[in-house]
């Protein structure tokens, strides 16, 4: 196992230098080395989506992405979600619809919804279903749907 010294990661518009073993998933660099614990660990196997972050605007399950492969890319975690216009609207909709229960999956849900709406501002129901597969053991799916449906509706004329 190689140790990677001085890996430079661009997270939330900041540059971080980290020393980690080269197979370390991005998730554990974010949580352990950098203390950004809003991104959660649920399965470590790309099954649940709790670890979702944005890498160059695309939603990624950070538990299976080696940190090395994120070098040179723009990473956004839940901590900076409100600095993004779409992310801010997503959070607002989450509050309006009172989505979270235990909350553990919700960072990932918000990231996945933000990524979808950034790429496709007015997704259809099928597009939403295809894009968002994050698990929620508390079963907040109806509330998530309601929040995303609200956001997916064209607003005024400038949709």
């Amino acid at each position: 196992m190689e140790l990677w010294n001085d890996m430079k990661l661009q997270i939330n518009q900041q540059t971080y230098d980290v020393d980690v073993a080269e197979d370390t998933p991005l998730l554990w660099v974010i949580r352990d080395n950098l203390g950004l614990t809003g991104t959660k660990y649920g399965c470590g196997l790309a099954q649940c989506g709790a670890c979702s972050v944005l890498v160059d605007g695309e939603v990624v399950r950070s538990c299976v992405m080696p940190a090395v492969s994120a070098v040179g890319k723009q990473i956004t975690t839940i901590e900076a979600i409100e600095q993004d216009d779409v992310g801010k609207r997503v959070v607002q909709a989450w509050v309006n619809h009172q989505v979270p229960q235990c909350g553990y999956c919700q960072s990932g849900q918000v990231m996945a919804a933000t990524a979808l709406l950034k790429a496709t501002p007015n997704p259809s129901r099928d597009e939403i279903t295809a894009a968002i597969s994050n698990l929620c053991r508390c079963g907040t799916y109806n509330a998530i749907d309601a929040a995303i449906d609200e956001l997916a509706k064209p607003v005024g004329g400038n949709a």
Binding site: G38, Y41, V95, P100, Q106
Partner: peptide
């Protein structure tokens, strides 16, 4: 409204696994 919904929507709620 529930008292913790905003924190849980922005990753600020802390569970045992997040503490240090």
């Amino acid at each position: 409204d529930r008292v913790d919904v905003y924190e849980k929507s922005v990753g600020k709620a802390n569970y045992t696994i997040d503490l240090k």
